[in-house]
Design a protein around this nucleic acid. Structure first.
Lengths: 217, 217
DNA sequence: ACCTGAACACCGTTCAAGT
DNA sequence: ACCTGAACACCGTTCAAGT
């Protein structure tokens, strides 16, 4: 049965011009979206690409390398989504809010991919420099958004991010992660969902006793 | 080789009085800490407990049920750590800060366990009511800490948490998760590490233009 | 009630060939 | 250079027994 699903989603085209490496990555991403992390196997990706189960080893050192390739695509897509949000932000909202909402909505739209990007222990092992670069590129958007909010984020040379940039990234990442896990249930209605996300992000930026920020409630 | 490690860590004691279910859970937790999620298998837990590879099925419906049992223990431990921190908070810090720091330090001290608790898709599938109850009990500490900070958190009947409680949980969870993944590198020195965590948590509570909160920098 | 052992379908990975 | 096929050790899970 699962074989049929695989075939329908990504029909085997052994000689369709595009190189096998990108075909395998695309097949892996499809498997991840449709069947979750458990369904993302080297052999299934090979089957979906119409090659033998050993062919992927020509392009990926091991399964982890294939996962890293998928995760890197995910960070690239996330960065693009943040850039799109920054380009046309909502007029009534505080600066940086459009990017924060776009971040959370991206995670909710791609839960398995988002989980792979962060929770799969791909980053800390320090293999895959391309993956780390993609993650840091996405992080750079968070720093830019923090500057738009008005925070003073000093240039960080390499290692340590400034505490305020870290705080904003932690906020949007934490909300995304908890919402994906269902621990912070979000409204189903798109408008209500967006409003709740704006409320959460604005809440941690307005401590009690301080004047509330300008939020379009 | 891995067999030897298993034997040394949790020697097989088929008849040591304690019931097999808790022995299996303890063995699974040991495997998780020493070898990560990949090393946590039903068969390895059975081996470490000195029973056949089918004995666990008497106590757990499947592998996911064993994982849920370990994760539930993790949420209980986290709740206890938060209670301990609340009992004797640092005098110079704002209220609620001690709990937030304790939360992040717990995650850093138990990275694989923390990842299992949140990232393993155990919560959203709605099996394991005990696990969900344990997670909500830990979340209750975050709401209590939010009230100590001075936020007005209305009672939430069941489903939707208030935006401010969600924001504080997202902040500490996001920082924990990103720190574990190495995306927000923390200082090695314990005092410097604690100071950085305090800075990050305080940063998102003091938006620019508002008077800075009383932080022991 | 609780545990065992054989068996099945799957997986990641190594190795020896094939063109 | 790139791909194949057999093989190995492992895993989760089902089934038929054993006490």
């Amino acid at each position: 049965v699962t074989d049929i699903i695989e075939e329908l989603a990504t029909p085997a085209r052994p000689d369709d011009g595009t190189d096998l490496k990108s075909r395998l990555t695309a097949a892996a991403r499809g498997l991840l979206e449709r069947e979750g992390l458990a369904g993302l196997t080297l052999r299934a990706a090979a089957r979906a690409s119409g090659v033998s189960h050993m062919a992927p080893y020509r392009h990926f050192a091991d399964k982890e390398a294939l996962l890293a390739s998928v995760a890197e695509e995910g960070f690239d897509d996330l960065a693009r989504a943040l850039d799109r949000a920054a380009a046309h932000g909502a007029p009534g909202e505080p600066p940086g809010m459009a990017e924060g909402v776009a971040y959370v909505l991206f995670a909710l739209a791609n839960p398995s991919l988002y989980r792979l990007m962060f929770g799969a222990q791909l980053l800390p092992c320090a293999r895959f420099p391309g993956l780390i670069a993609a993650a840091e590129a996405a992080f750079a958007r968070c720093i830019a958004a923090a500057r738009m909010v008005g925070y003073d984020c000093p240039e960080t040379e390499g290692a340590a991010p400034s505490p305020v940039a870290a705080a904003l990234w932690a906020l949007v990442h934490g909300l995304s992660s908890l919402a994906i896990d269902g621990l912070i249930p979000l409204p189903d209605d798109p408008a209500a969902r967006r409003a709740f996300i704006v409320q959460v992000l604005a809440a941690s930026l307005t401590p009690p006793g301080n004047p509330p920020a300008s939020v379009a409630a």
